[in-house]
Simulated scan of single mutants.
Amino acid sequence: MAQMNMLQAINQALVIAMEQDETALVFGEDVGHFGGVFRATSGLQEAFGKDRCFNTPLTEQGILGFANGLASNGFTPIAEIQFADYIFPAFDQIVNESAKFRYRSGNEFNVGGLTIRTPYGGGIAGGHYHSQSPEAYFTQTPGIKVVIPRDPYQAKGLLLASIRDDNPVLFMEPKRLYRASVGEVPEGDYTIELGKAEVVQTGSDITLLGWGAQMEIIQKAADMAKEQGISCEVVDLRTLSPWDVPTVAESVKKTGRLLVSHEAPLTGGFAGEIAARIQQECFLYLESPIARVCGMDTPYPLIHEKEYMADEYKIFEAIVASVNF
């Protein structure tokens, strides 16, 4: 075990993947000798050469088109989109090509070796073009998995699992935690199963569900609630598509209440899908309406970032309201 931050854990996962798979290639804007804007790919070009870690032109659609071509020919492309906010020019390539490649060919061909890495989320004073959380756009697309880690240990294990999965995976990294989140991480090779939520803390009064950087905020709210005698069960979804309905439903049947929190806007956010499905699965067990504590239905504001974010105080207030309903 070693102490490392999330960037170091991601970098170590990439090194392991490239050492074990000679077809693994890392590419994107500035990922070569520069190591990417956040330095997540530092040292890869020196270690594996310019043929396996290289810069691309500034064209997200081209990055993903190139990645699809590589994956369809048996390579293991690990493509980086520098910010999730800039993934939209590649949206067509991802949802109409990457996700449908296997289906449209009748399983004759696939791009299952593709992994797309991208930093997402706010909390860094990045303004409206460097703070968005667009995960929900991709969860409606059959054929692609969506994975989001909450800490360095999860990041390394989930990224290695994503790279080795036989489906294309969108791996979204909470940029606010890149250097802020530090923890014990095995230096060797390990994976964490995709599609499985994790019960981070057991409780009896309410289930708190989230993913990524929001898990730290949720835990703070749970600690505040504990001081008021409220027992919170905390669940990290980890994989949004496909998401682990049984684990979440089992928790809600025990606690009778559910609160979902994410950074993305409320309307159309993935919390709405969770609420609808859990209402269907757990209707007779619910003691109060399912609560959603999310971002606002506005562009992500720079000067009002603190007001926009779903912080621990907003979550705590929603916990109390749910328990006292």
Rank of each mutant, 00 (worst) to 15 (best):
N73A: 10
N73Y: 09
G74R: 12
F75A: 10
F75G: 01
T76W: 07
P77I: 08
I78L: 03
A79V: 11
A79H: 02
E80G: 00
Q82E: 01
Q82L: 15
F83E: 00
F83K: 04
Y86S: 11
Y86K: 07
I87V: 11
I87N: 04
F88R: 03
P89R: 01
A90L: 10
D92A: 07
Q93E: 10
Q93D: 14
I94V: 12
I94G: 09
I94Y: 15
I94H: 11
I94K: 11
V95M: 13
V95T: 09
V95N: 03
E97C: 15
E97G: 03
S98Q: 07
S98Y: 02
S98C: 08
A99P: 13
A99Y: 00
K100A: 05
K100N: 01
K100D: 09
F101K: 03
R102K: 03
Y103T: 05
R104G: 07
S105M: 14
S105N: 07
G106T: 11
N107H: 14
N107Q: 02
N110H: 05
V111L: 07
V111F: 06
G113N: 02
L114M: 15
L114C: 05
T115Y: 03
R117A: 10
R117P: 08
R117W: 05
P119N: 10
G123K: 02
I124T: 08
I124C: 01
G127C: 13
G127W: 06
G127Q: 09
Y129W: 08
S131A: 10
S131W: 08
Q132S: 11
S133P: 12
S133D: 15
P134S: 09
P134N: 09
E135C: 00
A136I: 03
A136G: 06
Y137N: 01
Y137F: 11
F138M: 01
T139D: 07
T139V: 14
T139C: 10
Q140E: 06
Q140R: 05
T141Y: 00
